[in-house]
Write a protein that binds this DNA or RNA. Structure first.
Lengths: 211, 211
DNA sequence: TAGATTGTTAATCGATTAACAATC
DNA sequence: TAGATTGTTAATCGATTAACAATC
């Protein structure tokens, strides 16, 4: 299929694509140097990353914006849309459900599931929140393999088991617990505690400098 | 002050702390081996990380849970609480504002700011949403140096500038744009696009295997 | 004592960075 | 042609892993 790309590189590619999309439509070419400057990255790193994904680079000119964007989109699978569901329709869950920024990366959130009757029904963007009992059936019918898990920590593992038993192969986990999953299932943790730790420590250092 | 710890290590420490907090109160000792198994990590890595933070490990016994927890909490600065604000009171912003899981990591969200009049006032957990105009004054009076930025992408940089001009030193950025900040300010990006890219690719590989 | 676990020292692995030839 | 940029090859750097002595 595709060349093997490390996780570190894979995580940077969406940033390049996002930047290209902010460029004015008439911009014809963009250099790795330019992208690096805009994203505060090393230009060699950008160049090496792009070389893995696109062969459209031309010495002296850089990359044609449109070709590079298409190559990135193709590589990241933005072309063929996959379906995802949100599990847990609390504030965070509903924010994810109504956020439409994922579609440009090839992921479409089709529905949410929750056990709380109060949250059931249609959201203002027209997406449905179903009772959890309907998950197994709908998951198969809608061919969903990605779940965004936003349930409380104390039931996250239990719900996670139900997901993997019904064909979910990739989970974005917002609950602050480590999930045990079968080998072929990938969990991507989106806890903000680690990020917070980094911020908090940086702050302590900055404030210490000021004294 | 404290020993220098790489960002990679720093990001793992909250996971250890979180796991210790889930242990039953009567658990006296825990080994690096045990923690590693629970979090699906390498035991040598866990042991090395813990050695940087605590000296309470005893051969044969492992770590006394309480001592290790205190050492981690101290290292991560969970003791002295710092104040943070949310900028942008949309669904995500309000979810962050009302989420109380940060306090156990030493960060207390004290208020939110927004320009939309409809969102102003008190939330159901008693936190206030102020108009953005009050930010400079309140930021100084409340000694806030951390901001969680959840405004739309198209005004994120502009708002970011206002933050750094008023004493913000650390920003958790949820907007899908790269922020330009002064050298002493740290931006921690919490975009889920990169995470999504990883999931999406894993899924493509898994589905390819099945054919 | 025996055995499990810690913590450290050395080896490996991978990612980033630097240097440079190729090219438009 | 001259110069900027690409893409590749080699060097460096840092993090992870393995091996092992110390210890309770």
């Amino acid at each position: 299929m595709n060349k093997p790309v490390s996780k570190a590189i894979l995580q940077r590619l969406p940033a390049y694509l996002g930047y290209l999309r902010t460029l004015p439509a008439q911009t014809e070419n963009i250099s790795a140097t330019g992208i690096a400057a805009a994203l505060s990255m090393g230009e060699v790193q950008v160049r090496k990353d792009l070389a893995l994904v696109s062969g459209a680079g031309r010495p002296r000119l850089g990359y044609p914006v449109q070709a590079l964007r298409e190559d990135l989109e193709h590589f990241l699978g933005c072309d063929d849309v996959v379906h995802a569901v949100v599990i847990g329709a609390g504030k965070l869950g509903r924010a994810l459900l109504d956020y439409n920024g994922f579609e440009s990366f090839g992921v479409k959130i089709v529905a949410a599931f929750d056990n709380n009757e109060k949250t059931l029904g249609e959201t203002k963007t027209g997406k449905m929140v179903f009772p959890m009992a309907k998950f197994p059936d709908l998951c198969k019918r809608l061919k969903v393999h990605i779940a965004l898990l936003t349930v409380p920590a104390d039931c996250a593992q239990e719900v996670c088991n139900e997901l993997t038993e019904n064909g979910i192969l990739a989970i974005m986990n917002f609950a602050p617990v480590h999930l045990q999953v079968p080998e072929n299932v990938l969990v991507q943790n989106e806890n903000i505690a680690p990020a917070l730790a980094v911020l908090s420590r940086h702050l302590a250092e900055q404030l210490a400098h000021m004294i």
